[in-house]
Amino acid sequence: MRRITSGTWLVLGLFALWEASARLGWVDSPNWPPVTEVVAALIRDSITGELPLRVGGSLWRMFSGLLAGGLAGVVVGLAFALVPVTARLFGVVVEALRPIPVPAVIPPLVLFLGLDDPMKITVVALTVFFPVLTNTMQGVRAVEVEAIAMGRTFGIGPWRRAAFIVLPACLPYVLAGLRVALGLALVVTVVAEMIAGEQGVGNYLVVMQFAGRAPEMYATVLLLAALGYALNRAFVTLEKRAIHWWFAMGR
């Protein structure tokens, strides 16, 4: 159990200030509902199933994109790092695409893939691809030369070397890239849903904003914050389990 620190009081104080300012009319605006009303809205929308359904859809799109983009990032990263010719040939293309801010690729993708899942999953995958690619390449460079040389001595072919020596050795880097990508993926899922289509939490946010239903809107933001926190926590736990040997080496 953590001791209650000054910081906890600050957070509680801010929430109290929020509640008081709305209840006592210090801030008199339909856009400023008391925090208790926001929590009530959160509970109401959870019970009706509206929010859980939308969150579920968003999560499904996010994880599909994470999987597709992560796989592509690892494969291309391994290829770039292990077969330098591929990096020399295709590196420029990748670097030309990297600086495009993700929301901007949504309008053209809508033309080809429509407003629904395929477009959104592609947008998430594109976002995830770059950090995973960068980290995989870094990871391959950090693999000990002796390990690869030993594999060669034992007559292990290049494909098996990539899969059974290089990939496990650079896993900590890949996972670090995926952790960054996970945060970005949630952001971008929400972005894609806000800009196009009628699915998911992102769309719910915008609809509630237009409808002027402030409690529902803040409830969604709170839920997303909790979701972001939980996802990161879960990932860190899984990461520790997957690469416990890495932490055991004191890195």
């Binding site: 910081g7 957070v11 856009n31 949630l186 971008v188 946010l205």
Partner: peptide, 20 residues
């Protein structure tokens, strides 16, 4: 003083803050 507040706001996908 600030750590809990930072940890509270940090995981919010910032894109979701645009509508409010």
């Amino acid at each position: 003083l600030f750590e809990p507040l930072v940890e509270l706001v940090r995981p919010v996908p910032k894109s979701a803050l645009v509508p409010p």
